[in-house]
Computed example of a mutant assay.
Amino acid sequence: MSAHHKINYIEIPVKDINLAKAFFSSVFGWQFIDYGPDYCAFDGVGIDGGFFSAKQAVSTVNGSVLVVLFSDDLIVTQGKIEESGGKIVQAIFSFPGGKRFHFTDPCGNEYAVWSDK
């Protein structure tokens, strides 16, 4: 399959790169490559991307794109998010095809987690 015109990379603003790295490493097992104090990259997580230092946070309330992660077990993932400093902002709900919930990371960015189980 050609990569031409496909989404290739995503960059996410974070208020604290070290806090974001610790959270995503703890909850989802992500690993990072640092490119100075204001940027780090991640790969092998479904789509490659990076975190960059910013004062803003992403939220659907503000019209932001929503990054949605997949989980084999929503309850376990939700627990890990809360244990690692994340906050559930929309409880688990059903939609055609599965269930999901929304959370914010410790930097205040909104994400969702879904499952077809």
Rank of each mutant, 00 (worst) to 15 (best):
residue 98 G to T: 06
residue 53 S to L: 14
residue 75 I to V: 14
residue 97 G to K: 05
residue 92 I to P: 00
residue 33 I to Q: 15
residue 54 A to M: 08
residue 18 N to R: 13
residue 55 K to Y: 13
residue 72 D to C: 11
residue 36 G to S: 07
residue 86 G to N: 03
residue 93 F to A: 09
residue 57 A to P: 01
residue 38 D to L: 11
residue 19 L to P: 02
residue 14 V to P: 00
residue 86 G to Y: 01
residue 71 S to I: 03
residue 40 C to H: 04
residue 18 N to I: 11
residue 74 L to G: 02
residue 46 G to A: 10
residue 87 K to T: 14
residue 39 Y to M: 04
residue 32 F to P: 03
residue 45 V to E: 11
residue 55 K to W: 12
residue 93 F to C: 07
residue 50 G to Q: 04
residue 21 K to H: 06
residue 86 G to V: 00
residue 47 I to S: 03
residue 33 I to S: 15
residue 100 R to K: 12
residue 65 V to K: 07
residue 24 F to P: 00
residue 70 F to R: 12
residue 24 F to V: 08
residue 18 N to D: 15
residue 43 D to L: 14
residue 51 F to W: 02
residue 39 Y to W: 12
residue 81 I to A: 02
residue 68 V to M: 10
residue 68 V to L: 11
residue 83 E to K: 11
residue 58 V to R: 06
residue 32 F to L: 08
residue 58 V to M: 13
residue 25 S to P: 02
residue 77 T to G: 09
residue 30 W to F: 14
residue 38 D to G: 09
residue 46 G to Y: 05
residue 97 G to T: 06
residue 94 S to I: 07
residue 68 V to A: 09
residue 25 S to G: 13
residue 48 D to W: 11
residue 78 Q to I: 05
residue 30 W to S: 08
residue 31 Q to H: 14
residue 94 S to P: 09
residue 26 S to F: 12
residue 34 D to T: 10
residue 62 N to Q: 12
residue 76 V to M: 14
residue 14 V to S: 08
residue 66 L to S: 05
residue 37 P to W: 07
residue 78 Q to G: 11
residue 82 E to H: 05
residue 96 P to G: 05
residue 85 G to H: 03
residue 51 F to M: 04
residue 54 A to N: 13
residue 50 G to S: 09
residue 61 V to C: 10
residue 86 G to L: 00
residue 46 G to T: 09
residue 64 S to N: 14
residue 39 Y to F: 13
residue 28 F to A: 02
residue 71 S to F: 01
residue 32 F to G: 03
residue 25 S to W: 04
residue 87 K to I: 13
residue 95 F to T: 00
residue 94 S to H: 08
residue 36 G to K: 07
residue 52 F to Y: 15
residue 67 V to I: 14
residue 56 Q to A: 15
residue 66 L to D: 01
residue 94 S to Y: 04
residue 42 F to Q: 03
residue 91 A to R: 05
residue 74 L to W: 01
residue 79 G to H: 11
residue 85 G to Y: 01
residue 73 D to K: 14
residue 98 G to V: 10
residue 32 F to H: 09
residue 29 G to E: 04
residue 92 I to H: 00
residue 14 V to R: 00
residue 30 W to Y: 12
residue 89 V to M: 06
residue 67 V to Y: 00
residue 86 G to M: 03
residue 33 I to A: 15
residue 80 K to A: 07
residue 54 A to P: 04
residue 15 K to C: 08
residue 84 S to Q: 02
residue 64 S to M: 07
residue 39 Y to P: 00
residue 88 I to L: 09
residue 82 E to W: 03
residue 78 Q to A: 12
residue 33 I to K: 15
residue 78 Q to K: 15
residue 46 G to D: 09
residue 62 N to R: 12
